[in-house]
Design a protein around this nucleic acid. Structure first.
Lengths: 203, 203
DNA sequence: AAATTTGCCTAACAATCGTTAGGTAAAATG
DNA sequence: CATTTTACCTAACGATTGTTAGGCAAATTT
């Protein structure tokens, strides 16, 4: 019964930290703040974690891996470009809504990572972005996407899906799938080639 | 020659602070950091400004006023909805690219505002957002925009234009007008009604 | 039952934080 | 020339920061 069904103390610390980091920011959250929520002393935290920076690293890189695993899965399985993009957006929204605290830290607080980690983190982030770019390229090759500026398309899409972190509340009426569909529809409207020469086309 | 053609010491402090706040975040930037760049002592800063928080407030509210003035101008002058939206996006991009440091603070660091200012700031922000929503509503009434979810459309548009703050460099090849056009085109593609019943229509 | 590990505690550290007080030399003003 | 104002300085303050050291009781392992 040591760690079955129950959450480890280390994970409790990370979860609490993520909540505070989202609320007040990494720099403004102290180890004593974290400890207070957990009814313990700041010094006791160091029995489970190495440093404050380690907490930030754990959150940022765990989230980065989730995002990368999701996009890799999408690109592995065969879909056409629109399916790929819709699935990629869906998984992205799912990961964000599953844990808004950790995703807020991933999206906003990564700047506070120590120099070495920061380099690695930005590499992973760029890799994720380039996977999205490939989907857009595919779509243009398949001639189902407009010949748009790839860079702008990817940045617009990613900024839209990331922005949900600013307003999403878990108790809200929409679930991840509904949010993803609305964003995808909006984005697709801008990307999907309008077949105006086909009289039977319906938008 | 007291303040003609030259920049006041107070403004120098604010400009320096904005640069540091963007680079390392408000909480991680110390008064001593700011003073170091200006070749002075931290205590001397207080001859020109009241507190560290005042610097943040000055930056955030100055930027907020710029954004609000721009959108008010757009909505005052008569344009159709597409023109309005394109102008609004253009002005937004112009303000951001004119001073990426202060806009970064406006976009990211406002969370560190003291409670009272924070309330006012969020009110202004919501007001700006609602002005955009009105444009979308106009476009739907004029029947030139798809019947999209307003909330999502506005959030997607604003997140896209705000995201340029993350990658824009003043020495880059694109100017504000070019960036605004690309974003507008991408957004419009998703908003503009496709007149498929008209055989002469060209996208 | 003895030995070890786990999980917390108190106390304290050096460093850094924003800010205030009081002084001083140069510049502006009368 | 005398006076006031401006723009800085040094020194120091109380508070807070992340972190370490050492101890102690309960739980676990041997």
């Amino acid at each position: 019964m040591t760690e079955f069904q129950t959450i480890s103390r280390k994970e409790q610390i990370i979860v609490t930290a993520a909540q505070l980091f989202k609320q007040k920011g990494y720099e403004a959250s102290s180890m004593r703040d974290i400890a207070l929520v957990l009814n313990m002393e700041a010094a006791s935290l160091y029995h489970h974690i190495k440093s404050k920076e380690e907490i930030l690293e754990l959150i940022c890189f765990t989230m980065a891996q989730k995002f990368l695993a999701a996009i890799a899965e999408v690109n592995d399985i065969y879909f056409n470009a629109e399916e790929k993009l819709r699935k990629a957006i869906l998984h992205h929204v799912e990961i964000i809504t599953e844990d808004i605290n950790k995703s807020a830290v991933f999206l906003r607080e990564w700047r506070s990572l120590p120099e070495n980690s920061l380099k690695d983190f930005m590499f992973l982030r760029n890799h994720y972005e380039s996977e999205f770019t490939h989907i857009i390229e595919n779509g243009m090759q398949e001639d189902i996407f407009e010949n748009v500026d790839k860079k702008f398309a990817v940045l617009s899409i990613l900024s839209s899906v990331n922005w949900i972190n600013e307003w999403y509340q878990a108790d809200g009426k929409m679930n991840a799938a509904e949010i993803a569909k609305k964003i995808s529809d909006f984005v697709m409207g801008g990307l999907r080639k309008k077949m105006v020469t086909d009289p039977h086309y319906r938008p």
